[in-house]
């Protein structure tokens, strides 16, 4: 059993030059380097692209690798994928100074819209990096079992406050000696009822609960807007 953050679509002061109107649900995906954020974005695109219009913003630290990977995988049409350069400081670009990311989202919606869903992948950072509420409506934090099964216990803003915690690469658990039960117990204790999902995205396992969680958010947004 779990509960969600009460305030799902906080008031935003994005001060865009263009006017308001319909806009997509913005979902941030954060987490350490290599935990599987890009793989999760790709899997979510495949799971949801026939139902809703999706755009993706990647934040690459010093290349366009993630955007290029998604383009190569052809998970979306090229005009639906855009990259933001974060200037050596990925957490600044999603939290302290979100202007470049806001612009990327607005430009995507203007040029490829109307969109229902925009997925923003942060440049991999440490466990304290979270998205500003001025940038995203909800955020998913992606960690993996190989990063150490004590990460949920250690907590930190990503683990404790993200709207959905994804623990990826469960296929590696036996190889790295990670105790999944303990991770689940620790996550539950840290997150005060917020949901956690275990996945093996590269093996195509576990993405459906994540996709369902996003569908639920989309439905809520549609209901709120109606």
């Amino acid at each position: 059993m779990h509960q969600d953050h009460p305030e799902v679509f906080p008031q935003r002061h994005t001060m865009s030059a263009s006017g308001g109107g319909r806009r997509a649900l913005r979902v941030g995906l954060g987490g350490p380097v290599g935990s599987g954020k890009t793989a999760t974005v790709a899997a979510l695109c495949r799971a949801l692209r026939d139902e809703v219009a999706i755009g993706v913003v990647t934040n690459d630290i010093y290349t366009r690798e993630d955007a290029d990977f998604l383009l190569r995988q052809a998970v979306l049409a090229p005009e639906r994928i855009t990259a933001v350069e974060t200037g050596a400081c990925p957490h600044t670009a999603i939290r302290d100074d979100i202007s470049a990311n806001l612009e990327a989202v607005e430009d995507l919606e203007e040029q490829a819209g109307p969109l229902d869903l925009v997925l923003l992948e942060s440049g991999g950072d440490n466990l304290t990096a979270t998205f500003s509420k001025g940038l995203v409506d909800v955020q998913i934090f992606v960690i993996d079992v190989a990063g150490g099964d004590d990460i949920p216990r250690k907590g930190g803003p990503g683990v404790t406050t993200s709207d959905l915690l994804v623990v990826n690469k469960v296929d590696l658990a036996e190889h790295v000696g990670a105790d999944l039960d303990r991770m689940a117990t620790d996550a539950a204790a840290q997150r005060g009822g917020l949901p956690t999902v275990f996945t093996s995205v590269a093996r195509g396992q576990g993405i459906e609960p994540v996709a369902a969680w996003i569908r639920e958010r989309l439905a809520r947004k549609a209901a709120g807007a109606a």
Partner: peptide, 11 residues
Amino acid sequence: GRFPAGGHAHS
């Protein structure tokens, strides 16, 4: 320099 106007990404 922390005024959120995008400067941090430029050298």
